[in-house]
Design a protein around this nucleic acid. Sequence first.
DNA 1: GTCAATATTGACATTAATGTCAAGAATGAA
DNA 2: TTCATTCTTGACATTAATGTCAATATTGAC
Lengths: 192, 192
Amino acid sequence: MVGVRQFDEDEMIATALDVFWRKGLHDATMQDLAAATGVQRGSLYNAYGDKEAIFLRAFDQYAAQFLDAASSALAQGDTSARLRDFFDMIIVNMTDGTPQRGCLTTRTALDAAISSPDVRQRVQDVLTRLEQLVGKAISATPNRRSTADANRLARVIVTFTRGLAVMERAGYSRKQLRESATTFIDAVIGDA
Amino acid sequence: MVGVRQFDEDEMIATALDVFWRKGLHDATMQDLAAATGVQRGSLYNAYGDKEAIFLRAFDQYAAQFLDAASSALAQGDTSARLRDFFDMIIVNMTDGTPQRGCLTTRTALDAAISSPDVRQRVQDVLTRLEQLVGKAISATPNRRSTADANRLARVIVTFTRGLAVMERAGYSRKQLRESATTFIDAVIGDA
DNA sequence: GTCAATATTGACATTAATGTCAAGAATGAA
DNA sequence: TTCATTCTTGACATTAATGTCAATATTGAC
């Protein structure tokens, strides 16, 4: 390699993630990315090809850290405690930043109709893996659920997290989201 | 009135709703609206001012019919039956059309960051009124819930419907959504 | 130190959207 | 029948985005 890249790729992708998280794949422009990263538009095209390629890299980074955090949150305690930690993580994740950034996966999912198969696949992968993590977590503690029941319940729980992401966009506060999550956990797990 | 409008306003708004439902406020263009309605762009600007004004009218029509359908679905039977009908209506609503149109309220909510206060308010109003309808419905049958509990539960139920809307966008089938809704109802209401 | 390979830069072409406007067409009212 | 009012139409100006490219700068390898 001879002419050497003038920017740090990891740093670039991390900054791009921030931009995509705040604006979404569709609304973030190459201008936005260039301005935020300090890398010229032309260089970005040269290095990555197009906006979507940058997004996919950024999203992969996001998905990895998100699933990691979910896994950690789901690791300890009884089922209720695991879910409390899990929902806490999710809610903090989506209500962080000024203004709040919301949930990138959910935002990306909503643009499915105008997204490429690659992007759609990424969203499905995150949700599938999240279902698996939740399924394992609620099966890990002593209970009288069948595996099939646990899987169905895991999907319900993941679906509910998506609902929280929508409610956040609709203006519900962190506190309101937490209350709903608590109510949900109590209703679903409380006496099972 | 002298120069007379060449198109039927109700029909025009109904067609506009279809366009917005399929493409979203942001992605639908005045070209799209002009093509679908057969009314020239200039005439639309003359009649309504801008795209958002058309959207607001279309959304109001959508919200009215949606809340009406929800109200009907929630009217009869015990709590489980009411919720089954309610979720059925919601799921059919979002999985209808080819390709599926999804949920307009949810799609609009996700664009909150780039929407006007008027648009955001419309979304909040729909969700608030939906919570009220659900709250009334689950309080209508004999049960041992306090009003406060019913309201919290109503919000959880509405939040779950939003989750279903996201899952639909992520590619889950009508059947999968129905199964999740059933599991949810059983878990939340089944033995309360 | 030279050079070949790569990155950077700014300009350019293209496409597409919004919103405005002047000119023309149509029609209810007097 | 005339006319004032309103709607319709197509053209225009503006803005903003994507993606390409040729010219230039840089630097590791030999």
